[in-house]
Design a protein around this nucleic acid. Structure first.
Length: 731
DNA sequence: GATCAACCTG
DNA sequence: CAGGTTGATC
């Protein structure tokens, strides 16, 4: 007698036996859903596919703009070098810029240009990736030639108008943007001649550390990536140090300036722009504290916005403090001792305009490119609020709300500086104030997050480490802007503002909290696993900007842009209660059509993702059901049962308990008698088939499925109600 | 070729 | 339970 009990055997026997029972196919819209959904899934899942290309292209596009801004600012700082001395940070920066200019001026690198090598191993890519941001500057860094170019630059800055300047800088950048491929190629060579000073291990660590760099910024230099990353590593560290010092100096100067500036501040507030400025600067001051203690990595996350802020403050500072014309342009030259008289104001506006324009360009470009794919999720973040009416709905939505808020929190951590600890008493700007990027506060430490996040169990780590929350740099110019407005505009129970108050430990008093937690855990698992898949090069560094992108991809995998709003957390997606309901419905129907599902899950806004998920649920239910049936049929045979007459399913039989445990775990639903009948029929079908030896046929179950699919009974009307669980379970 | 459900895996 | 694969069917 064969061992019919063996599940191993069972699984072996059923292995790769595919059965299409010819059950009515779900027709209509659902069919289309699946096709597209599948296509979307595939494309979204393909880590080697176009997605990366997209990401890459994002970087590429962003590159020019961003480096443009950076360089502009850096150059500005450079132009003030004389005034700023002693200013350690200026030296390398200026050299950097000068060399860029030189390069642009025709001194093309001697590397052989040869497109982007696709032969790069993972490690190689990571190297390139992680070193790009500071390698490229290094690349341009020349050990000599500091004064001449500086003077030259200064003179030109003195003489030319803003427009001319801009054109020149653009030229420079354009010139630089040609070097990367060059650099990439050179990279290979340089690796070999690289000094042995850096061990592979150290190199790896270094890379790891640098992975924390916002990838946008990181990759924004990717085109400039050069070979000498290893041999220049030491220099890079110095550069970082100098940058840090420079930033400190900037802050100090800025503070000084604002002390002076306070008296004249009000007069400039009329345009509203400047007040925003002040606010931002104060924010920076608030940040100054932790900035000082920042690690290299964090310092490197300084984004263009911060540069702008600081550069702006620096300019003002100098204007006021030195009372003499600066080289920012002709207008500055004209300005007299009273820096903030009309002319000064004009100047300020001009500067702001320029800066804003630059920033806007960066933001627009990145957002534009990004929104072509990953940013599909954007609408999801702030869909219209849907207030659940009934308790079921509340519970149902609660989960969504929960997860949504976690997502929001992700963004919130990055986008919205906690008003309490960042802005102090400074009021948050209204949404309309944010035509320009908010000061990006990189709040990464976990304490902040836990403080503002609803702790629903302690397994939030993955989500909070999740992409955007940790990738300040990435979100700097491209992400932060779109989100905060609506987020802050919502007066709802957002944990952003009042964290612990709104969510005292166990989020609300929902009886489904546990389920919710489980569900969100599952969600998070999914998300994180996808991050890994999409960015195999950065699993060890959770907070990588690549994952930030990935977050979007994950969400976008559920459908197209228009669908994203549909599966919005607030507009009715599948909750644990929906799952519970589906399980109970399984007692009536094993093969529900998609139309039926739509009817019975009327509170769910259907889209491809939802539909397929529901279908999948029932598919899984069936799977379990049939496995149990086969198992118990074989067990019965093993037990010596010879006639189906002996097989009956009662409410206290083992099979029933197993099924009930699966579909009605809480046992708070009275399983319909009909289900017992169907189960019994199924069991007997399996029994007979096995007895008859039909299970040698790979598709022997097909006949059984055919029988069972006809045994679906009407699902009670009550299941059509979104509140059915309540009504069913408590009546 | 598109679609679907069983099948498989984690 | 979900993602992915396979084979059958339309």
């Amino acid at each position: 007698m064969p061992d019919h009990d063996s599940t191993a055997l069972l699984s072996r026997q059923t292995k790769r036996r595919r059965v299409d029972i010819g059950v009515k196919r779900t027709v209509g819209t659902a069919s289309a859903f699946f096709a597209k959904a599948r296509a979307t899934f595939f494309s979204a899942m393909n880590p080697q596919g176009s997605e990366q290309d997209v990401e890459y292209s994002v970087v590429q596009h962003a590159d020019g703009e961003k480096s443009n801004v950076l360089r502009k600012l850096l150059k500005r700082a450079n132009s003030y070098e004389d005034a700023m001395m002693p200013f350690p940070g200026a030296t390398i920066i200026s050299q950097l810029l000068k060399n860029n200019m030189n390069k642009n001026g025709g001194t093309e690198p001697s590397f052989q240009a040869s497109g982007l090598s696709s032969t790069g191993s993972e490690v190689h890519q990571e190297d390139v990736c992680s070193n790009s941001s500071r390698d490229s500057p290094q690349e341009c860094l020349s050990p000599f030639g500091r004064p001449t170019m500086s003077q030259f630059d200064v003179d030109r800055l003195c003489d030319e108008h803003l427009r001319a300047k801009r054109a020149r800088v653009e030229n420079i950048i354009r010139g630089m943007s040609h070097s990367p491929s060059v650099a990439l190629r050179g990279n290979e060579n340089e690796r070999e001649i690289a000094p042995q000073s850096v061990s592979p291990r150290e190199s790896y660590r270094e890379n790891k550390r640098k992975q924390k760099l916002p990838q946008q910024q990181q990759q924004s230099f990717q085109q400039l990536v050069s070979a000498r990353k290893e041999q220049k590593r030491e220099e890079r560290r110095q550069l970082k140090q100098q940058l840090e010092d420079m930033q400190k100096q900037l802050r100090q100067l800025q503070e000084k300036f604002y002390q002076i500036y306070d008296s004249t501040d009000s007069e400039n507030d009329e345009d509203g722009n400047l007040s925003e400025d002040s606010m931002r600067s104060e924010t920076m001051d608030a940040r100054a504290g932790d900035s000082v203690g920042r690690s290299d990595n964090e310092m490197c996350e300084l984004d263009p916005g911060q540069f702008i802020d600081r550069a702006r403050a620096l300019i003002r500072e100098q204007e006021v403090a030195e009372n003499k014309p600066k080289r920012e342009g002709p207008k500055e030259k004209e300005q007299g001792p009273n820096a903030f008289h009309p002319e000064g104001k004009h100047l300020a506006e001009t500067l702001k305009q320029e800066l804003n324009t630059a920033m806007s360009q960066v933001v627009d470009t990145v957002v534009k490119v990004f929104s072509s794919k990953p940013s599909r999720q954007l609408p999801q973040v702030f869909p219209p609020l849907q207030i659940p009416q009934a308790r079921f709905a509340v519970n149902g939505e609660n989960h969504n709300f929960h997860t949504a808020n976690q997502r929001l929190q992700c963004f919130g951590d990055v986008i919205i500086p906690n008003p309490l600890d960042t802005f102090g008493s400074v009021p948050m700007p209204g949404a309309t104030d944010q035509t320009e990027a908010l000061p990006l506060v990189v709040r990464k430490n976990s304490s902040d997050q836990s403080a503002s996040a609803p702790p629903a169990g302690g397994h939030h780590a993955s989500l909070h480490q999740s992409p955007l929350s940790a990738t300040a740099g990435f979100s700097t110019s491209s992400f932060r802007h779109p989100f905060p407005l609506p987020l802050m505009a919502y007066p709802f129970q957002s944990p952003l503002g009042a964290p612990s108050a709104s969510f005292p430990g166990k989020e609300r008093a929902s009886p489904e909290s546990l389920d919710l937690t489980r569900e969100t855990t599952s969600l998070r698992t999914k998300m994180s696993s996808h991050h890994m898949n999409h960015h195999p090069c950065s699993p060890a560094h959770p907070p990588s900007a690549a994952e930030g992108l990935s977050l979007s991809l994950i969400k976008s995998e559920c459908g197209d842009l228009q669908d994203m709003s549909e599966i919005s957390p607030y507009s009715g997606s599948l909750s644990p209660n929906h799952l519970k309901k589906a399980k109970l419905m399984f007692f009536y129907t094993r093969y529900p059509s998609s139309n039926m599902l739509k009817t019975y899950f009327s509170d769910v806004k259907f889209n491809r993702c939802i539909t397929s998920q529901l279908i999948k649920w029932f598919s899984n239910f069936r799977e379990f059901y049939y496995i149990q049936m086969e198992k118990y049929a074989r067990q019965a045979i093993n037990d010596g049962v010879t006639s189906t007459e002996e097989l009956s399913i009662t409410r206290d039989c083992e099979l029933y308990r197993a099924l009930n445990m699966h579909y009605n775990k809480a046992n708070d639903f009275e399983v319909p008698e009909r289900f017992l009948e169907v189960a019994q029929i199924t069991l007997r079908e399996f029994f007979n088939a096995i007895i008859a030896g039909k299970d040698v046929d790979p598709s022997w179950k097909k006949a059984i499925y055919k029988v069972i699919c006809k045994l679906d009974s009407e699902v009670p009307e009550i299941f059509k109600s979104p509140n059915c669980l309540q009504e069913l379970l408590h009546e």
